[in-house]
Design a binder for these strands. Sequence first.
DNA 1: TGCGCATATAACTGTCAAGGCATATACACT
DNA 2: AGTGTATATGCCTTGACAGTTATATGCGCA
Lengths: 102, 102
Amino acid sequence: MAVDAFAVLAEPTRRRILGRLLEAESSVNELVEALEVSQPTVSKQLKVLREAGFVICRTEAQRRIYRIRAAPFQALDDWLQPYRALWDRHLDALERHLDNLE
Amino acid sequence: MAVDAFAVLAEPTRRRILGRLLEAESSVNELVEALEVSQPTVSKQLKVLREAGFVICRTEAQRRIYRIRAAPFQALDDWLQPYRALWDRHLDALERHLDNLE
DNA sequence: TGCGCATATAACTGTCAAGGCATATACACT
DNA sequence: AGTGTATATGCCTTGACAGTTATATGCGCA
C-alpha cells in the first residue's frame, strides 16, 4: 500500500469524507453541507484523498462528483493480514504469514 | 476502535516497531539495535503505542520486554469492514471497469 | 553503598499540515 | 460579454509532534 495511506486516514475530516462517500458519491458542495466544514477545507482534503488514490472525480458541468475507490482499502486489508495471526486462530492467516517469512 | 489509532499508525517508526514486535517480543535495546534509531525515540514511541493499546510490557530485572497486542488490529479490521463492500461483494462489471480506468 | 546498565522523561527545536480567509479558475445561462 | 455558481488554490497563522541532547529513575551486582 502507499506508504502514507495511514497518514491520510489519520485525519478525522478525511475519514468523515470517506464515510460519506461510501454511502453515495457526492459533489463538493454536498460534502460541505453534510459535514459542515468550509468548502476550501473539503476541496483540500479531497485533493489529498485523490492523490492518495482514495477517491476519483468526474466533472459534470461545473460540479465535480467524487467517488470512493476500493484499491487503498484493499491495500490496507493486505497490510493488516500478517497481524491477523495475532487473533485469528484459523490456520490460514498464520500459515500465510509464516510462509511469507520464508 | 480508538479514534486515534490511525494517527498512531501514521508514524513510520511506530509501524517498524510493530512489525518487529510481530516477529518476537523485544526489549527496548533490542528494538534500538534492530531499527537503528536512538533509545529515547524508541522509548517515546513505545509509550505512544502502549497508551494506544498496541503493546504491553513486562519487567524483567532492568529490562522491559514489549509485546504486541491484538485488540487495536482487530478494531482496525472492524473499521475496515464496511469498506470491504467496495470489493468483495457484488461489484458490478461497470464499476470494476471504471476503477480500472483510474 | 557505589557503580554500571537499561529505560524513561524533560526541555528544546524544526518541520509539517490543518483550517481560515481571500482570490482565482471553470462553467452555465441569459 | 456579464453574472452567478461550483470548485480549486495561495497565503498565513497556529498547533502538534518527531527527533535530539541531557538528565533522571530503577535495578543488579560487587
